[in-house]
């Protein structure tokens, strides 16, 4: 039987530009700490298994699924959650292109798009596909999300699935 009296440790996390001190179990995932200790509920639990992407956040500008990452692994890095984005072009593009319905997968998709655009300001369709196939959206048909991301790529009007 596991030892129930989990030993907690105190760590500092740099989240959305703020240093936050939290008492965690070393095995706590980043998702768990964001939601349960810091009340940052933008990242969503969808599978807790690294499959759906609803919990995606950025760590040092790379996108990660926070359910398969320990909070302790992000100590010393800059964590950005959807709450850390303010009026970003991709958020506005999602609104304009109706790239969500229920909205549950949306923070994860937006963080993935944000990281993608940081690394590839002018991505090809193939790159967008490779990145965005990491997330599941069950409401839209993905065409809306495709239109949203390409609308913020400079010098491109709309995407194409062909």
């Amino acid at each position: 039987m596991p030892n129930p009296s989990a030993k907690k440790i105190s760590v500092s996390l740099n989240i959305n530009g703020e240093m936050r001190q939290v008492e965690i179990r070393p095995i706590d995932t980043l998702l768990y700490v964001l939601r349960h200790h810091l009340s940052l509920t933008g990242a969503k639990p969808g599978c807790l298994n690294g499959d759906c992407g609803a919990c995606s956040v950025m760590v040092n500008d790379n996108v990660y699924k926070s359910c398969i990452m320990l909070a302790i692994e992000s100590v010393g890095s800059a964590i950005t959650t959807v709450e850390g984005l303010k009026d970003s072009p991709i958020q506005n593009a999602f609104v304009k292109h109706f790239a969500f319905q229920c909205g549950y997968c949306t923070p994860g998709f937006i963080m993935n798009c944000q990281a993608l655009l940081l690394k590839h300001p002018h991505p090809t369709y193939e790159v967008v596909k490779e990145w965005l196939s990491s997330n599941i959206c069950r409401c839209t048909c993905y065409q809306e999300i495709e239109e949203a991301i390409f609308s913020v790529v400079e010098g491109r009007v709309g995407g194409t699935s062909e």
């Binding site: 690294g50 992407g53 995606s56 790379n62 996108v63 990660y64 699924k65 398969i68 990452m69 993935n112 490779e130 990145w131 196939s133 990491s134 997330n135």
Partner: peptide, 12 residues
């Protein structure tokens, strides 16, 4: 490698 899991998961 690019066929394994998905891009975000492969960051980890």
């Amino acid at each position: 490698s690019m066929e394994i899991a998905d891009h975000t998961a492969r960051n980890k």
